[in-house]
Amino acid sequence: MANDEKIMARADSQAGAAGSAGTASKPHRLAVASESERVGVVKTYKLYVGGKFPRTESGRFYKVDDRKGEPLANICRASRKDFREAVVAARAAFSGWQNTSAFLRGQILYRIAEMLEGRKEQFVAELYSTGASRAAAKTEVEEAIDRLVYFAGWCDKYQQVFSSVNPVSSSHFNFSLMEPTGVVTIIAPEKSPLLGLVANLAPAIAGGNTVVVLASESMPTAAVSFAEVLHSSDVPGGVVNLLTGQSEELLEHFASHMDVNALVYCGTDKGQIKQLQTLACDNIKRVILRRQDRWDDDDSRNPYLIADTQEIKTTWHPIGR
C-alpha cells in the first residue's frame, strides 16, 4: 500500500488517472518490479523560477517522508542564490503582470482553477501521501480550486471596492486607487500545503504582485505540482516562483532582500517572526503576518487579503474653473 501511495504521489503526468490505487504500477526505485509489471516513471521535484523548472543551483536535496515515515521523494533544497534568481525573475515579470488587465488576470486565475480541477485526483493523492486523510485531502483540493475561482472573480472588482474619489476643497480632481506593492515573498503555511499556499498566493497575484513562495518544508510535493498547474494556465513566467527548501536557511534572505517589497509570513514561530520583522527594516518592507491554522473560513476568503499587498496611490489633477 505504501508503495502505491508513492506512485500516486509521483505519477503527476498521468493527471487524474491514478484514481484507484489497485491499478497503479510499482515504483522502479523503491520496489522491485516483477517481470510482468510495467516500470513506472518517477517524477523529479524541482523548483519553479521564471517559468522554468530548474534544479537548485546548489545541487542539494532533502528527503521527504510519506505518511508512514518512509522516504517519498528527494526535494530540492534551494539556496540563497536560487532565491536571488527567483527575485530577479519576479521583478522582471512585475511590470507586465501589474499592467495585465484586471479582466485578463481574472481569466488566468480562473484558468488555474480549471487546471487544478482537472488534476484533482493527483493532488488528493499527493496530499494523502504526505499525511492528510483522504477526506481532508479531497476537501483541501476542492477548497483550493474554489479559492482560485473566488479570487479570480475579485481581480476586476477589488479596485472598485477599495478605490475612492476624494472630494477636496481646491479645484482638483482627486482619486485614490490600489496598485500592487511589487515583489512579494510568501512563507507558505507549513500545514495545509496546497490550500494554505493558494490562500496566500491567490490574493497576492490577483492584485498584480509577483511572488516568490517558499513551500511547506515538510509537505512540499503538492506545491511543486501546483507550479506545474500554474505553468499550464497562462500565468506568465516569473509571476509565481516557487522554492522548496529549509525555511531556517532561507528566511533571512526572504526578509532582507532589498528588492522585495512585502513579505507574507504564515506561521506562529515567535523567533522567526522577530527575525523577519527585524530584517525587513532595511528597506521598510511591509510584513504581513497570517497566524491562523485554518485556511477555509472567512478569515482567508475576503478581499482585504488582496489589500494587504497593495499600495494606495492618490492622484491630483486640476479640474479647471
Binding site: 476624494n166 472630494p167 477636496v168 482638483h172 482627486n174 485614490s176 494606495i312 492618490t314 489633477h317 486640476p318
Partner: peptide, 12 residues
C-alpha cells in the same frame, strides 16, 4: 499632475 504639494483631509 499639473499641480504640486496639495493637501486635503480627504486625500490619502
Amino acid at each position: 499632475a499639473n499641480t504640486f504639494n496639495k493637501f486635503d483631509p480627504g486625500s490619502p
